[in-house]
Simulated scan of single mutants.
Amino acid sequence: MIKGLGIATVWTLDQERTKNFFKDKLGFEIRSDLSMGDTCWVTVGAKDQPDVDLALMSLDGPVMDPDSAEALKALVSKGILGAAVFRTDDCRGDYETFRARGVEFVQEPKERPYGIEAIFRDDNGNWYSLTERNEELDLSKDWAN
């Protein structure tokens, strides 16, 4: 049986720059930064969620043929790919903090049926939702008690 998600991929044009984006601007931990021959294995994660990592995958790594790398690079550079939804308890507060650190937001916090959401891009163009769920949809709460 699957027990949950452990690692998700974020495509990056520059692993070092993206690692610093997640660490310095979003406050993530560096979980691994290992040289593996011609490539590096870099993972980051939210401090309060130690069991889920984001693998910052370079487009020039061994798993990507040149044509696919170019196609993916074009999509990443255009900002076509949505990478993740990050949960927060304070969307408006985090929006102000991250904006002050230089994070590019394409949508300021807005009320949605599921809560408050802002949308930002990383240093590659990947977009992310920063979401504060409303109580009806907050599945992390223990409703049995």
Score class of each variant (00 low, 15 high):
57 M>S: 10
104 E>R: 14
98 F>H: 07
25 K>F: 02
55 A>C: 12
4 G>F: 05
48 D>E: 12
143 W>Y: 12
56 L>T: 06
110 K>M: 10
21 F>A: 04
89 D>E: 14
77 S>E: 04
63 V>F: 15
42 V>I: 15
88 T>I: 02
79 G>D: 02
134 N>I: 07
111 E>H: 06
98 F>A: 03
144 A>W: 10
106 V>L: 08
123 D>W: 00
65 D>S: 10
84 A>T: 03
58 S>H: 10
116 I>Y: 06
20 N>Y: 03
69 A>P: 00
80 I>M: 13
26 L>K: 07
85 V>A: 09
60 D>N: 11
95 Y>L: 07
3 K>W: 01
33 D>Q: 07
126 N>D: 02
143 W>A: 10
17 R>E: 10
35 S>G: 11
137 L>T: 12
73 K>I: 01
77 S>P: 04
124 N>G: 08
63 V>K: 05
102 G>S: 05
69 A>E: 01
138 D>Q: 07
24 D>C: 07
2 I>V: 15
113 P>N: 12
81 L>E: 04
133 R>P: 07
7 I>L: 13
105 F>R: 06
89 D>R: 08
3 K>L: 13
9 T>L: 08
48 D>N: 13
114 Y>K: 04
1 M>A: 14
50 P>R: 12
65 D>R: 08
124 N>Q: 04
103 V>A: 01
55 A>L: 15
13 L>F: 02
49 Q>C: 12
145 N>R: 14
17 R>A: 10
90 D>Y: 09
67 D>P: 00
24 D>K: 14
92 R>F: 00
30 I>T: 15
115 G>P: 08
